[in-house]
Amino acid sequence: MKRAIVTAPGKTDVVDADRPRTGPRDVLVRIRACGICGSDALYIAIGGLPPHHGCMPLGHEAAGEVVEVGSEVTGITVGDHVVIDPMATPGDIIGNGGAQGGLSEYLLIANARRGVGLEVVPDRIPFEVAALNEPMAVALHAANRCNPKPDSKVLIFGAGPIGLGAVLAFRSLGVQHIVVADVIGSRLEKALRVGADAVINSAEENFVERLVAIHGAGEAMFPGKADTDIYLDAAGVPAVIETAIAVAKKGATLGVVAVHKKPVPVDFLSIMSNELTLVGSIGYPTEIFAVTADLVANWQKYALIISHTVDFANLDDALTLAADPGAADKIIVTMN
């Protein structure tokens, strides 16, 4: 079979590898789609992670079709379409330093149990949409960390894949009003199509005035605050943190799911005086398959998050596109 690996800093290759052998407790999946994550660019830049530095299989946002089922496996049959939990085996994480990656023709799920290492999805769901399950679990966990209520007013910074996924996640949790802010008009148009109630182009509008106009004025020690309950940073820009804290009303929550590569100054006086809650979010401790039902029910909206699909034969083109900031939003590599 073919497998994409990181071979050196800044270099990837598609190599021949042995097709995994299926044991009695295992399931073999033919991968049909795999998303490219921002972390993949990091792994490529540094030459992969130990213990497979210099030969690390790539890809962890995978979906595919079951082609072999071990004799002791129950609840899974040949032909099932499945999404994968790459984190299910802590010492051998798929596409994150483990011995396997989702950008391969086949993937072995050891000790396979439905709802643990993989989950079945209806075959009417396109594989490229099913491959969104893993990043959408990241978005759902971020929304859960913010502890929303049905009447919460939410502002999401960033209309990239996680920001758009957060729109759908907050909606699935019953939130009634969601605003998205970004500086790219096309992304904001997509946010509205996904289901945001309003958008703010912070490159063209006064962000604070526009947010107050949408959500109303909020109670705080000083005037000029918005009545927004939850702010979620899915942009990773230092100005987002500064802006959210400056406009937040008393008791508001600021969640951070975006990766900030450098320390960000924080106004702790405002956090203290307005009793703000600051929460971080990483991964999906319980959400990897909790998101699956909503993905299946609303797959047409999730499909809007995908900006490009690229055939596995043109993987270099996909990785080059992913490495160019602003050139693409969500890239899915497909395998026929």
Rank of each mutant, 00 (worst) to 15 (best):
M221Q: 14
A220L: 03
D267L: 02
H215W: 06
K225D: 04
T228F: 00
A252P: 10
L295T: 04
A235R: 08
A239M: 06
D227W: 05
E287F: 03
E209V: 07
V237N: 14
V247H: 10
K249Q: 14
A290T: 11
A248P: 05
V237I: 14
G195Q: 01
L232C: 07
R210M: 09
A246L: 13
A196K: 00
T292R: 09
V259W: 13
G251C: 02
V296W: 04
V247R: 13
T243K: 11
V237C: 09
V296G: 04
W299F: 14
S273N: 07
L232N: 04
E275Y: 03
F268R: 01
F207Q: 13
P285T: 02
W299L: 07
E287Y: 01
K262M: 11
V199K: 07
G236S: 06
Y231S: 07
A234E: 04
T228Y: 02
A217K: 13
V264Y: 13
V199C: 09
T292A: 13
M272V: 13
V291M: 12
P263A: 11
A293I: 05
T286A: 06
D233Q: 02
G280K: 01
A198Y: 04
M272D: 04
F222T: 14
A297P: 09
G236N: 11
P265H: 07
W299K: 09
V257H: 01
I214T: 10
E204Q: 15
K261F: 15
K262R: 15
V212E: 12
A258T: 09
H260S: 11
A246K: 14
V264D: 08
T253K: 13
A213C: 08
M272T: 10
T243G: 09
A235W: 02
G218Y: 03
I271W: 04
D227R: 12
G255I: 00
G280V: 00
W299Q: 15
Y231D: 10
V266G: 08
A217P: 08
E275R: 14
A290S: 10
M272K: 02
V257T: 12
N201R: 05
G283L: 03
D294A: 14
P263K: 15
A244T: 02
G195S: 02
T286V: 10
E204D: 07
A239F: 08
A198M: 04
I230Y: 00
N201T: 01
L211R: 09
M221K: 12
P238C: 10
G236Q: 11
S270A: 13
A246V: 05
L269S: 14
V212N: 13
E219I: 13
